[in-house]
């Protein structure tokens, strides 16, 4: 099972991830990623793995990880 982990020590609220995997992450009112599933690190369904991977690669602060 793959989860999308936000490293809050790195995240700066750029918001690229919420644009790339809107199914898993929304943006809160300050621009920081907000898990849509309510889980701390949302579970990534197989169908979204590619998008999640793009989000991981696109994060300018390297604050996302698939774990």
């Amino acid at each position: 099972m793959t989860r999308l982990h936000v490293d809050w020590t790195r995240c700066d609220g750029h918001g690229a991830c919420a644009e790339l995997v809107p199914e898993l992450l929304a943006s809160d009112e300050w621009g920081f990623p907000l898990s849509r599933t309510g889980e701390r690190d949302p579970e990534v369904p197989v169908s979204l793995e590619e998008h999640a991977d793009h989000a991981v690669r696109s994060c300018p602060l390297m604050a996302l990880r698939l774990v």
Partner: peptide, 14 residues
């Protein structure tokens, strides 16, 4: 961390 014109935030980075 801003989007630029029609590019989204990830678009700017891409």
């Amino acid at each position: 961390g801003r989007s630029l014109g029609g590019l989204g935030r990830f678009g700017v980075a891409d």
